[in-house]
Simulated assay, not measured.
Amino acid sequence: MRTQVGIVGAGPAGLLLSHLLARRGIDSVVLEARSREYIERRVRAGVLEHPTVELLREVGLGERMDREGMPHEGVSLRFDSEEHRIDFADLTGRGIVVYGQQEVVKDLVAARLADGGDVRFEVSGVRLDGLTSDPVIHFDGADGTRGELRCDAVVGADGFHGVSRAAVPHTTYDRQYPFAWLGILAQAAPVREELVYANHPDGFALYSMRSPEVTRLYLQVPPDTDADDWSDARIWDELHRRLGTEINEGPLLEKGVTGMRSFVAEPMRHGRLFLAGDAAHIVPPTGAKGMNLAIADVRVLADALYRLVTAGDGSGVDAYSDTCLRRVWRAEHFSWWMTSMLHTDPAADAFDRRLQLAQLRQTVRSRAAATTLAENYVGLPHGSV
């Protein structure tokens, strides 16, 4: 087989790139290791930045998001038993939309298949060759048949553990955090309209939501925590205590522990292979940047690949890594800052705790400091970093 762009991974980055390329008349094939049912049901982050929302609307993917998504014009920071609202609308004139990553994936899969896009699920044995000149993707199809896909460019959007990242000679920047998140998805109507980030002496907690019927909540726990060691009653008790706000309880639909790390691989390109999303960078979830960074990557990459395959213009792909990494490092800093300001470090002493509280007080009392948080949270305009 031959196509213009071969894409490994059918997450938001890979699927959106395929959609953006198709709108410009560029053919692509998307190869995904998991089943369609799996990727459409896998619950992930749900905060869409303002530029992400605008892009999805612009490319015809905003109808269900606008109907079912939950617009937020601010978030609250809770510490010292008091709650302080950061008003995004007042500070920036913009907001965010809570709309689960799996919902974005559903919309993208439906759009690609409706347009005759080639998305292949349950692919295995992916191997990349000829990346400096004539790229080839070798793979086994769902029926076990061996396939060979020749293309002008390959995009690795297959996540941190995929095959693509290992094929790019890179320098790694990595930070592991001494805590994790115990997250639950509960069949319980949210009682709040916006997210609440709580800094508590015994650990961070987050109140969020996924729909008018489903609440998403998190607790800071040690990184070696086994979710099965936490009973439902223990989780609810700790959430009430740390959040200090009303919570509707309900049956747990999901429970799991997520590690916290910052990771960047530089560069994001090797020959005709380009990394996007988690294959190139990971942020702790505190700043809600993961999916938004992936979408920002492919917005840049779609334009660069269009110029490359239609006119032989390599200027866009040559600049791709540097262009994206400027935004990546801004998001890495913001995510690190939010994480360090809101979590309890087990190695911290009383001096560190006082510094943390001083930062929180400055953030909620200074309009300039609150604006910095708001601008980064709602998302800096694409192309502005």
Results as ranks from 00 to 15, higher is better:
Glu82Arg: 15
Leu128Arg: 03
Ser211Gln: 12
Val154Lys: 03
Val123Leu: 05
His281Cys: 13
Trp236Lys: 11
Glu266Ile: 10
Arg36Pro: 06
Gly60Ser: 10
Gln362Leu: 13
Gly69His: 06
Ser76Arg: 07
Asp152Glu: 15
Ala167Arg: 07
Leu149Tyr: 02
Pro212Ala: 13
Ile295Lys: 03
Asp226Met: 05
Ala89Thr: 12
Val214Asp: 03
Gly156His: 03
Ala166Asp: 15
Val53Leu: 08
Phe139His: 07
Ala189Arg: 15
Val8Trp: 05
Leu342Ser: 02
Thr286Val: 13
Lys106Ser: 13
Phe121His: 10
Ala294Gly: 15
Gly95Cys: 09
Leu15Gln: 06
His281Asn: 12
Val8Ser: 02
Leu91Met: 09
Thr286Gly: 05
Ala319Met: 08
Ala294Trp: 02
Arg272Ser: 04
Asp322Tyr: 02
Pro285Thr: 09
Thr323Tyr: 02
Gln362Gly: 14
Asp322Pro: 07
Glu375Gln: 15
Met291Leu: 15
Leu206Ile: 11
Met209Trp: 00
Val191Ile: 14
Asn199Gly: 02
Gln101Leu: 09
Asp143Glu: 12
Glu49Gly: 11
Arg234Glu: 15
Ala288Pro: 06
Val191Phe: 09
Ala114Ser: 15
Phe160Met: 12
Leu217Lys: 01
Ala198Arg: 03
Tyr320Leu: 06
Ala186Met: 10
Leu243Ser: 06
Gln101Gly: 12
Ala311Leu: 09
Leu252Ala: 11
Asp303Ala: 14
Glu238Tyr: 02
Leu293Ala: 14
Ala350Leu: 13
Tyr377Ser: 04
Gly156Ser: 11
Val119Phe: 10
Ala311His: 14
Glu40Met: 09
Ser340Asp: 13
Ile295Met: 14
Asp90Ile: 00
Val364Gln: 01
Glu254Tyr: 13
Leu325Ser: 08
Thr344Arg: 15
Tyr218Ile: 01
Leu15Arg: 05
Gly156Lys: 02
Ser315Tyr: 04
Leu243Thr: 08
Asp87Lys: 08
Arg64Ser: 06
Arg165Met: 06
Asn292His: 07
Arg367Ser: 10
Val221Trp: 03
His333Met: 08
Asp318Gly: 14
Ile137Asn: 00
Asp115Arg: 15
Ile184Ser: 00
Ile39Pro: 03
His50Arg: 10
Val43Asp: 01
Arg112Trp: 05
Val123Tyr: 02
Phe274Asn: 01
Ala189Trp: 04
Pro51Glu: 03
Asp232Ser: 14
Gly60Thr: 11
Lys106Pro: 01
Glu49Arg: 10
Leu128His: 04
Glu238Lys: 05
Thr172Asp: 11
Ala368Met: 08
Asp87Arg: 09
Ala302Tyr: 05
Asp158Asn: 08
Trp230Val: 15
Leu21His: 05
His281Asp: 06
Glu49Ala: 14
Leu91His: 03
Gly312Cys: 08
Ala348Cys: 04
Val123Lys: 04
Arg327Trp: 04
Ala369Cys: 08
Leu15Gly: 02
Ile86Tyr: 01
Arg307Tyr: 04
Asp115Val: 06
Ala22Pro: 05
Leu308Asn: 04
Cys151Asp: 11
Pro251Asn: 12
Ile7His: 01
Pro381Glu: 11
Cys324Ala: 13
Gly383Tyr: 09
Arg24Phe: 05
Val8Leu: 14
Gly95Pro: 10
Gly147Tyr: 05
Ile282Ala: 06
Leu48Phe: 10
Val309Leu: 12
Ser81Leu: 10
Thr339Ala: 11
His19Gly: 06
